[in-house]
Design a protein around this nucleic acid. Structure first.
Lengths: 194, 194
DNA sequence: GTTGTTCTTGAATGAACACTCATATACGTT
DNA sequence: AACGTATATGAGTGTTCATTCAAGAACAAC
């Protein structure tokens, strides 16, 4: 009996996520989201109770479920090893150098912009970092078994370092998207695993 | 003959820098700065032509000249070596774990919040990264001469990696200020210099 | 066609924002 | 004491912000 929805909430959420990703939380206004989604304020607020912040938190989760797996690629597969870690880093560099990819990573941006003042947002970021670390650890363990890295390698410790390295890559890349610089960082990170 | 200034511009700039450091550019309002400095809007605008953004850019430069050297410590000295790099990283970890230090680094925060949309701010950040890289390279060269690292070490490349690592440390630390994690990152970064 | 329910709409709300300006003020000079 | 000059003041500017709400609209059931 009720009037049917004229928009798909997931589509709206995707558009909102993109804006937050490009511009950050504070710099994205409701009017921006209205323009980007075509959905008027009233509908936006009734579809996403909790307003802008709730929409942002849902965007973070959507990013984790939609964008992150695409970036991780085969790194999350059980058989992942050095090549998949390398592939992930190369993808990061490629993104940072492309005009559309300069926005970096929504979760890294959130860590800096919001984590200190918003525990819920910080928790999503922590979850992402833990997920990254899990992948990296697993891939390093596979690499150790296959003799692709030195046998003495501390897999869990090196995984934590690799996670930090790719966060740092994103910071450096945002201020200075220079291919030589970014590739040097990646190459040296991998040389250390040798 | 004119009426004398009732405040020291440098003092005001320091207070403004602290607010920008704690809260970021967008989240810091003129009213915040008025409260923090005790200087009324009119005086603020006449003392710092260019308004909020000019005050921010001046804050970045002030941070570079006041805060950064303190954090770098002996790392900028000509004789700096592995111990000084280690000291710098340990200081970062200590800061990230302390209640006052959770704000991280103003220049890293700026890289994420503003670099993509403000070329002048990005340039200051790039200058900072270059300065860090110069220190690190020099210290690694000293370390090589003294046999503190493996002879095969690529000093300039490793310096770039160390710079990225400390940016990453700041991102991770902001979302997850966990001592064990942060120390593991630092330890593994140094293990790689072997 | 009427009714009930949920949706859409966009103007309206009040707060916060960056910024300005007329006025008042404090000083050295005369 | 009177003047010229640079500063201090804070109410006021117009804008933008997140959010709300009354009114209208679309559908299924009857």
């Amino acid at each position: 009996m009720p009037r049917p929805r004229e928009f798909e909430p997931d589509t709206v959420l995707n558009a909102a996520m993109l804006r937050f990703w490009e511009r950050g939380y504070r710099a994205t206004s409701i009017e921006d989201l209205v323009k980007a989604t075509g959905v008027k304020p009233g509908s936006l607020y009734s579809a996403f109770p909790g307003g802008k912040r709730a929409l942002f938190l849902k965007s973070l989760e959507r990013y984790s479920k939609l964008v992150v797996p695409e970036k991780l690629g085969e790194l999350e597969a059980p058989g992942a090893s050095i090549a998949e870690i390398r592939g992930y880093f190369d993808g990061l560099v490629r993104d940072l150098l492309s005009p559309e990819g300069r926005q970096g990573c929504l979760l890294v941006n959130t860590a800096i912009e919001k984590a200190a003042e918003d525990d819920e947002a910080a928790a999503v970021v922590r979850g992402h970092l833990a997920r990254l670390e899990r992948c990296m650890t697993h891939a390093l363990e596979n690499a150790t078994r296959r003799g692709q890295v030195r046998a003495s390698l501390d897999c869990t410790g090196s995984a934590k370092l690799l996670v930090a390295t790719c966060q740092g890559l994103m910071v450096v890349g945002k201020a200075n998207p220079d291919e030589t610089l970014l590739r040097a960082i990646v190459d040296n990170a991998f040389a250390a695993l040798g």
